[in-house]
C-alpha cells in the first residue's frame, strides 16, 4: 500500500511538473521543474527495483545535465528575464496535437493491455550481475554497446569543446 501511495505521489509530481516545465515563461524555473520530473522518474526506477538505474538517473541526469542547463541559461539569459509568450494559435495547435496524441495512445493501451501482468517482487537486482552483463561478450551481454557509448562520449567531449570555444 505504501508503494501505491508513493507511486501516485510520484506520478502526480511528474504530470504536474512536466506540464509546468514546458509552459513556464521563465527559463530557470523550467529547468527547475525539469529537475523535479527527473528526480521523480528516478523514484519510479527505485519502485521498479532498478537501484542502479536510479543512481545513474540521479547522477547523470539530475546532476550533470541539469548543471549544463543551468549554466547555459545563465549564459544566455539576462537575470529575471521572461520569455515573451508564443502566439496563442501556435500554442493551441500544439495542445490539440498533444491531447490527440495522448487520447490515441491511451486508446491503444486501454484496448490492448488486457493481460494481467503481475509484478514479481524480487530482491533488488544484484549489482555484480549487472556489471558482469555489462562487461560480458556473450549473448545478452553488452560490452560492445558499452564501448561504443564510451567512444561517443569522447567524441562529444571533443565536439562540444570545439563548437563552444571562442574563435
Amino acid at each position: 500500500m505504501a508503494e501505491q501511495i508513493i507511486f501516485y505521489i510520484l506520478a502526480a509530481i511528474i504530470a504536474v511538473f512536466s506540464v509546468m516545465a514546458v509552459t513556464s515563461t521563465r527559463l530557470i524555473r523550467s529547468a527547475l521543474y525539469l529537475l523535479f520530473v527527473l528526480l521523480a522518474t528516478a523514484g519510479l526506477y527505485l519502485l521498479l527495483g532498478y537501484h542502479y538505474l536510479f543512481a545513474v538517473q540521479t547522477a547523470v541526469y539530475a546532476g550533470g545535465i541539469m548543471v549544463l542547463f543551468i549554466f547555459a541559461i545563465l549564459l544566455t539569459q539576462k537575470p529575471g528575464e521572461r520569455i515573451t509568450p508564443e502566439p496563442l494559435k501556435q500554442r493551441v495547435l500544439a495542445i490539440v496535437l498533444s491531447v490527440a496524441g495522448i487520447a490515441f495512445c491511451g486508446h491503444i493501451v486501454y484496448y490492448n493491455f488486457n493481460r494481467v501482468y503481475s509484478f514479481v517482487k524480487e530482491a533488488e537486482l544484484p549489482t555484480k550481475q549487472l556489471g558482469m552483463t555489462l562487461m560480458g561478450t556473450e549473448k545478452f551481454q553488452y560490452l560492445l554497446p558499452f564501448e561504443s557509448i564510451s567512444i561517443l562520449l569522447l567524441a562529444c567531449i571533443v565536439g562540444a569543446i570545439m563548437i563552444a570555444r571562442k574563435r
Binding site: L93, L97, A100, I108
Partner: peptide, 16 residues
Amino acid sequence: AWVFLLGTLLMAFLIL
C-alpha cells in the same frame, strides 16, 4: 516537426 508528428500519428492511425 509538426509535419513529422502529424504524419506519424496519421500512419499509426491508418495501421491500427
